[in-house]
Amino acid sequence: MPVFYRGPCARITHRVLAVRTPAPRRFALCGLSAVHIVELAPERDGSGATARLYATGTAGAAVVAAWPVLGSTPLAVAATLAAAALAGVGGCWRTRGHSYELHGVYQGSLQVLFRSTDRRTFSQVVRALVRAMEYADDHLTN
Rank of each mutant, 00 (worst) to 15 (best):
G7F: 04
C9V: 13
C9L: 13
C9D: 09
A10M: 09
A10K: 00
R11S: 12
I12T: 01
I12S: 00
I12E: 00
H14N: 14
R15W: 03
R15V: 04
R15E: 13
L17A: 03
A18L: 04
V19K: 00
R20Q: 14
R20A: 06
T21P: 00
T21G: 00
T21N: 04
T21S: 07
P22A: 03
A23E: 13
P24G: 03
R25C: 03
R25L: 07
R26Q: 14
R26Y: 04
R26C: 11
R26F: 07
A28Y: 13
C30D: 11
S33W: 04
I37V: 14
I37N: 11
V38G: 02
V38C: 11
E39T: 15
E39I: 14
E39G: 10
L40D: 09
A41T: 05
A41W: 03
A41Q: 14
P42H: 11
E43F: 02
R44E: 13
D45L: 06
D45E: 07
G46F: 14
G46P: 10
S47Q: 07
G48T: 12
G48C: 07
A49W: 10
A51F: 02
A51C: 09
R52V: 09
R52A: 06
L53F: 15
Y54H: 12
Y54I: 07
T58C: 02
T58G: 01
G60S: 08
G60V: 07
V64E: 12
V64H: 05
A65Q: 07
A66Y: 09
W67I: 00
P68K: 05
L70R: 08
G71P: 03
S72F: 14
T73P: 05
A76N: 10
V77H: 01
A78R: 12
A78C: 05
A79K: 04
L81Y: 09
L81T: 05
L81S: 08
L81G: 09
A82N: 04
A82W: 05
A83V: 10
A84N: 02
A87E: 11
V89R: 10
G91Y: 05
G91H: 13
C92R: 11
C92F: 00
W93C: 14
R94F: 08
R94W: 06
G97V: 11
H98P: 10
H98Y: 15
H98G: 01
S99L: 15
E101F: 10
E101P: 00
L102Q: 04
L102N: 02
L102M: 14
H103Y: 14
V105H: 12
G108Q: 13
L110G: 08
V112S: 09
L113D: 01
F114P: 00
F114A: 01
F114G: 00
R115Y: 02
S116A: 12
S116N: 10
T117A: 14
D118E: 15
R119V: 09
R119L: 10
R119Q: 11
T121G: 10
T121R: 10
S123G: 14
S123M: 11
V125G: 01
V125W: 00
R127V: 06
A128Y: 00
A128V: 06
L129K: 02
L129P: 00
V130Y: 14
R131D: 15
A132R: 01
E134W: 04
